[in-house]
Amino acid sequence: MSRPLRLNVGLAAAGVALILILRLIDNDYAWYTGYVILQYVLLAVAWNILAGYSGYVNFGTAAFFAAGAYTTILLTKALNLDLLVCVLAAGLVSGALGLGMGWLTLRLRGVYFSIATLSLAVVLQTLVVNWPYAGGSSGAYTMRPQGYAVFGNYSEFLFVLMLVLALGGIAVAAGIERSRLGLGLATIRDDERAAAAAGVPTLRLKLIATAISGGMMGMAGAPLPYYASYLNPEAAFSLTHTINAMAMTLIGGTQGWVGPVIGATLLSTLQQGATVTISSAGNLLIVGGVLILFVMLAPKGILGLIRAWRGRGDTA
């Protein structure tokens, strides 16, 4: 079996195993918790496609995520489309958003791109707040169907949907790492000028990466209105999504897709456990603090620590 095939089979097997385990537990809380963790896995893997692979920091995770969620709200309200169609549409909308954003600012030094993505969230949020059709500042409700096809209940369906999206996201990220695109992005991260001198079309590759990354974030946000039954701009555009995606990736390690998966699983499992005992503000404080500690003391993340530790073992 080739390596890519082995990875995809492995991912599928892990997915099936997860579904079976949660079926045994079978309570709504388990499906919900699993959904949130997988949502962050997808967000972190997506964020890393831009940050880890090409070295560009995106502060607009919340904007891409919310654009996906509001695509669902609008399409459901206007055309009563199925959630699965909405997910695809959300991917397209947020991908296009990334493309536009990148086209405006990716010619500039990386920090300007970061600053521009920071503004994107506020501009979009203001638009939504002032748009009564999308629910305005008070938000919009979504009617949740009772069940869906073969799934026991709608919570299980949402979980499986997010599982498929997250595993698909991982497969895409792993595919990029092995591809010509991945090689080109790595040269951009290492030295953009030398990359161009070697014939790498830097702007085009960055645009592709931004579109893929943005599209994946949009798809992560698309089921949110159904998950929560109610969506307001504050929740959709919350900086929590941005800081989490970033912290999870940097804590796990940016070298490849494994880092964000580890970071997201670890951090969001802890967060889900901690919400019972700690307020959401306290939760955020811990994430911020851990992020600061990691970027200072372990800039290569948990994976870097493991590698360093193994390396020491080898030489000893």
Binding site: A51, G55, V57, F59, V111, S114, L239, I243, M246, A247, L250, T254, L284, L285, V287, G288, G289, L291, I292, V295, M296, P299
Partner: peptide, 12 residues
């Protein structure tokens, strides 16, 4: 990357 993340974390 890490420096930007540092200040973002500090802000939060």
């Amino acid at each position: 990357m890490q420096g930007l993340a540092f200040f973002f974390g500090l802000m939060i």
